[in-house]
Simulated scan of single mutants.
Amino acid sequence: MNKPIQAIDTHSVMFITPRPDVIMVEGKGSWLVDNNGKRYLDFLQGWAVNCLGHGNPGMIEALNAQAKKLINPSPAFYNEPMIGLSNLLTTNSCFNKVFFANSGAEANEGAIKLARKWGQLNKSGAFEIITFDHSFHGRTLATMSASGKPNWDTMFAPQVAGFPKADLNDLESVKKLVTDKTVAVMIEPVQGEGGVIPATQEFMRELRKLTKENNILLICDEVQAGCGRTGTLFAYQHYGIKPDIMTLGKGIGGGVPLAALLATDAVACFVPGDQGGTYNGNPLMTAVGISVIEQLLAPGFLDSVKAKGELLKLELLELSAEFGLEGERGEGLLRALMLGNDIGGKLVELARERSPEGLLINSPRPNLLRFMPALNVSDDEILQMCGMLRELLKEVA
């Protein structure tokens, strides 16, 4: 006998996006459960946030243990997890200094401020940051202005000035924008919201060379692509380059609000009063961040992400060939299936409504699907997802 569907009253929740009439109440690993007891195979994971899936024991243990000791002494003081996570990040990257924030947008806002401050001190007030069409850097006014998302230039006009747009993987388009006002180039190693478009090896290396030759900073926005998502701890490590600034969010907290701005000693030029934040670096969130990074660094973990990414790639290519689609692209466990037609939204809806078990996927553009599973997703769950998707494609494609 089926459970009765519970009615929900959401009148007090501000409307910002259409949501289905279900409430997610529980999660474990790659699965979510709603208020009616229906299970969903989750290949969204909070938009690449839950890098270790739902209900990760190590994260829960860290959260519980730290909550009993100290939650927030104020950012006016050091705390042990703040220092521990800073050391963990710098030891395993090319950076020397870390500022913690609460969201990727906040980390990117900090990166913009840091680059402009460096420009004031080192480049006669240079302030322009070259970004890229179809990029996504956040939802503050400055990070929306930095983003190359279509129609965002008029949504909350006027924009913050100083973000000329180049074309990803086109070095000449970057060169044309370089002036004496240019202080930095800001790039996502994989454009997630733009449709899972990776920067090429050659482009990233030539971009790093160009920025060095012109005394311009290179900022890697790894909010979506960082923290193991592409199969290396940080996405820039794929390219054999060293950026000057990197931002992290989403995966670094595994589901709790945590982000980070990292910089080399040569660039870390904030002075008291330049940057802050009431909750930034609080021990409750940074304790969880330590658990996340330690699990990502466990022997064999990142190799398993690469292997699972390859499995997902092969399965998506098989679906593409079977249904006459346009292939797949991505890095690690951040991948997209190109559909060839604008059926993405329909597939997302049918996948969620599928019975008896739903599937959670995403269509950032109407002609493709994006997959962001937990990094510890099982091979069987990847095969199960592709089996579910095969059923849906038979219906729609």
Rank of each mutant, 00 (worst) to 15 (best):
R208K: 14
N362S: 05
F203G: 04
M59F: 06
D265I: 10
I23E: 10
D34W: 05
T131H: 10
A307M: 07
G37T: 12
T211N: 00
E80G: 06
E109R: 13
M338F: 13
D244L: 02
N50E: 09
L262Y: 08
D380N: 10
G192M: 06
L121V: 06
S320Q: 07
D167A: 14
H238N: 10
L52P: 01
L141M: 13
G228E: 05
L171V: 00
V185M: 05
L369C: 01
N341E: 13
S103M: 09
A67F: 02
A105E: 15
G332S: 05
K149T: 14
T230W: 03
I187T: 10
G55N: 11
V190Q: 06
A48M: 04
P257K: 13
V174K: 12
G251K: 02
T131L: 10
G249C: 00
N50L: 12
L262E: 09
A235I: 05
L368M: 08
F270A: 11
T182A: 13
L325T: 00
Q201W: 09
S103L: 07
I290R: 14
Y239E: 02
A336L: 08
T264I: 03
G340V: 08
L218Q: 00
G273Y: 11
L177F: 12
L375Q: 03
L311Y: 07
I16N: 11
L392A: 07
S145L: 07
K175F: 09
A107P: 00
R390Q: 09
V267F: 09
F95K: 03
N122H: 15
E128Y: 10
K97Y: 05
T182S: 15
K3A: 07
L360I: 11
L210A: 00
L32Q: 00
M1C: 11
M59G: 06
S145V: 11
N35Y: 05
L177T: 06
T264E: 02
W152K: 14
G249P: 05
C269E: 07
T286C: 09
A65R: 15
T154D: 06
P243F: 00
Y279D: 13
G276A: 15
I343P: 07
G58Y: 06
E395L: 02
L210G: 00
M186K: 10
E193V: 15
R390A: 04
T90D: 09
L63V: 01
G162E: 14
